[in-house]
């Protein structure tokens, strides 16, 4: 288990290194000078020169890459040109919106998908199975921004249970914060839950037809017990893979939902930075998201080994 974990950790470090090089090179090969690009075509020569100096663009590429990388390691992500404030402060404010949002959405999606997938699989071909699968088909098909607007229409505008958008900040209390994240989390979670439920169902059905489930039944386990004790854990591997992917998506890909609900999250930050050509912010936030995704996959890999002893290798 230790060997396996170390191996996965090594692969995590290598992924991060490769990602940092790719991100740096991509920003570098954007045609033209970053400073000119950021200031637009009407900028004065001396303004550009000043910005170049400020951005450290006069140093060699290798030196700049190293400065960027070593800066990030100690939490210094540079200074945003447009916001005129350190990037780590910008990120620090927003991550406390994005991370809870992703976590709530993930919990919600898992909590919905697991029982649905299990019920559908254990009653394969029944009316319950077919209606649940029909509903998830719908869930997969509906775009989440449209679903978000429907939620706003019903729960914010008509019922007035929630605000239609914005985030009061955690200073206003945990409840107020959670309340503001409820609708966005549902909008994010439901389509993902539909996908996850379908994966859960298929994976469980595959496992239920395995020989060892029949063996368990021959021991005297009821259908339900055989499913719970033997099939479920074996069915989890593909489900965990999807959960890992979904968490990454919800953290990094919540741009649209954050825009619909006017949430000051990472998605909106990166969206605004791109439109304002604030390359330093873009570079750093993308790196941070890569870090989050790689880290999540690392944990998914560790969970695989917890679930399946065959991956742990010899003790």
């Amino acid at each position: 288990m230790l060997r396996y974990s170390l191996k996965r950790f090594l692969s995590l470090l290598i992924s991060l290194l490769v990602a940092s090089i790719v991100i740096f090179v991509v920003i570098e090969i954007v045609p033209g000078d970053p400073a000119t690009y950021m200031l637009g075509i009407n900028a004065q020569e001396d303004t550009i020169a000043a910005l170049r100096e400020e951005l450290g663009l006069n140093a060699s590429k290798l030196e700049r890459y190293w400065n960027w990388l070593s800066g990030m390691m100690v939490g210094d992500f540079g200074t945003s040109y447009t916001y005129r404030s350190p990037v780590n402060e910008l990120i620090g404010d927003r991550i406390w919106v994005s991370l809870p949002l992703a976590l709530i959405a993930l919990t919600l999606s898992t909590a919905i998908a697991f029982p649905i997938g299990i019920i559908a699989a254990s009653r394969r071909g029944s009316v319950t199975d077919m209606s649940v699968m029909g509903a998830t088909q719908l869930g997969v098909a509906i775009p989440n921004f449209w679903f978000a607007m429907i939620l706003v229409l019903i729960f914010a505008i008509n019922l007035r249970w929630f605000a239609s958008g914005g985030f009061p900040g955690w200073d206003e209390g945990v409840f107020a914060g959670l309340k503001a994240l409820t609708l966005p989390a549902i909008a994010l979670a439901l389509p993902q839950a539909s996908i996850l439920a379908r994966v859960m169902r298929t994976s469980l059905l595959d496992t239920l037809s395995e020989d060892f489930v029949r063996t368990a039944r021959a021991k005297g386990l009821s259908k339900a017990k055989a499913l719970r004790r033997h099939a479920l854990r074996n069915a989890l591997i593909p489900v965990l893979t999807i959960i890992g992917l979904q968490f990454s998506f919800m953290l990094a890909g919540a741009i649209i939902i954050e825009n619909v609900f006017y949430l000051p999250g990472l998605g909106r930050l990166i969206f605004q930075s791109i439109s304002q050509r604030d390359l330093i912010v873009v570079e750093s936030v993308v790196m941070l998201l890569v870090f989050a995704v790689v880290l999540v996959n690392f944990f998914v890999d560790l969970t695989y080994a917890l679930v399946d002893p065959r991956l742990r290798g010899r003790q």
Partner: peptide
């Protein structure tokens, strides 16, 4: 089939 008759995770 003894190879598949046992639950691999227990």
């Amino acid at each position: 089939e003894p190879m598949t008759a046992l639950n691999p995770v227990k």
